[in-house]
Amino acid sequence: MSSFAEKAEASIPAEIRMISGCRDEQTSADVSNVASFTLPDPAGRAGGACTSALLNIMYKDKHAPDDDISFQDVLLKMRDILSSKNFTQIPQLSSSRPMDISTKFDISQPDFHGNKRAVMVGINYIGQDGELRGCHNDVLNMKEYLMDVHGFEESNMNILLDDGVHTDPTKDNIMTAFREIVQQSEEGDVVYIHYSGHGASVRDDDGDEADGMDETLVPVDYNKSGLIRDDDLLTTLVVPMKKGVFVTAIMDCCHSGTILDLPFNFKADGEMDHMVADENYDFDPLTAIIGQLAAGNPMLATAMNVVDQGCGNCTIS
């Protein structure tokens, strides 16, 4: 019988790491003034607490840290910063592979030999209930960090903002961007995914969640087109990403702890000192997705074009 780690590698070919701003049951803050986080421009304006804390550690005063800093250190420092601002959210690191959290934090890999691509989504929900102020700034600050420190080229960065200038972050546009980056990426490539906006928790509709809830992203047109469920992200982004692609995702939204449904987790709660496997993880849905991909199922490629029937019992928070 295959080990848990072997099943994970067979089910999720790419190496994917995700930092989320909070646990599934928590909300994540949109900060009205992030000057105290000592950020680069646009310091002093709004921003997401998770992204702001990360940038405070990795890009303070527009400089990367002189010393190596581990994933564990990044998560714990984020937690300390958030706690000092009276935020209760607990950052979380998830991975498709078991990993040593003392590994140096990096968005690239030492053996990188391909292209660097990014999809970055920031939604302020301008003119809607629950309007936010900092999500555009999150994306623009992270874009500068990626280009300055990690060598990403602007031509390989797909930016979606509801600002009337960039591609509108509708459900269809977000999922199209995810499908395209999966199709474009090859072994040796580095991929960065960023989402700043609302997140929600809704009742699981297919019985694959131990807590009975699906975590979701909230596109700008959610009232018309519905939410983007974790199952949709698993089907469209996580499982189809090719072997040998190195993916880093930042999810700065509420209820985002396991939104990519990755099998290994570390919570920066001060109690965990290593990454653990999710003993309740169900590989069967991933096996089904792989089977459909192998069969060239056309429904899989268009699965995210199906409109959800409203937001159910979700609360946009």
Rank of each mutant, 00 (worst) to 15 (best):
N223Y: 15
Q183D: 15
K242N: 12
R133D: 09
D148Q: 09
D138R: 01
G212F: 03
K224L: 14
V190D: 07
E154W: 07
S196V: 09
E186R: 12
P219T: 07
G188M: 03
T170D: 06
E153C: 10
L234A: 12
G207T: 09
T235Q: 13
I159D: 07
T167I: 06
N156W: 14
M241E: 04
V191S: 00
L233A: 01
G199N: 11
D172G: 02
M213S: 03
D168Q: 08
H198S: 10
I159R: 02
D172M: 03
R179P: 15
T176D: 07
D138M: 02
V139T: 00
L140Y: 03
Y195F: 15
Q184D: 13
S201E: 14
T236C: 13
K143N: 08
P219Q: 07
V191H: 03
V165L: 00
G188S: 06
L227K: 05
D232Y: 05
D172K: 05
R203N: 15
H194V: 04
V220L: 07
M175K: 03
E187V: 00
D206W: 15
R133I: 00
T216R: 04
A210Y: 08
V182N: 04
S196D: 11
H198F: 14
Y195H: 10
N141C: 00
G212Q: 03
R133C: 03
V218E: 04
V238D: 05
G207M: 09
D138H: 05
L237W: 05
S196C: 09
D163P: 10
V190L: 03
K224Q: 15
G134K: 14
T235W: 13
K171L: 12
Y145W: 14
L161R: 08
R133E: 10
P240W: 10
S185H: 11
E187S: 08
N137Q: 08
D204T: 13
R133S: 09
V220H: 04
P240Y: 11
H194F: 12
K171F: 14
T167P: 00
D232K: 04
M157I: 12
Y192C: 11
Y222T: 02
V218T: 05
D231K: 11
Y145V: 05
S225G: 10
D214L: 02
N137S: 06
K243I: 04
E144A: 05
A210S: 14
T236Y: 07
E131D: 08
L146D: 06
M241Q: 06
G207R: 07
K143Y: 08
G164C: 06
G199E: 09
K242Y: 06
V239T: 11
D148A: 12
V191F: 04
E187T: 01
I228D: 02
V238S: 05
V149P: 01
Y222D: 01
R133P: 00
V239S: 01
P240G: 11
P240T: 08
G197R: 07
M175C: 13
D172W: 04
L233K: 02
E153V: 08
R203I: 13
K224W: 14
V182F: 13
D221Q: 13
S185D: 11
E154D: 14
D231P: 08
T235Y: 11
M213C: 01
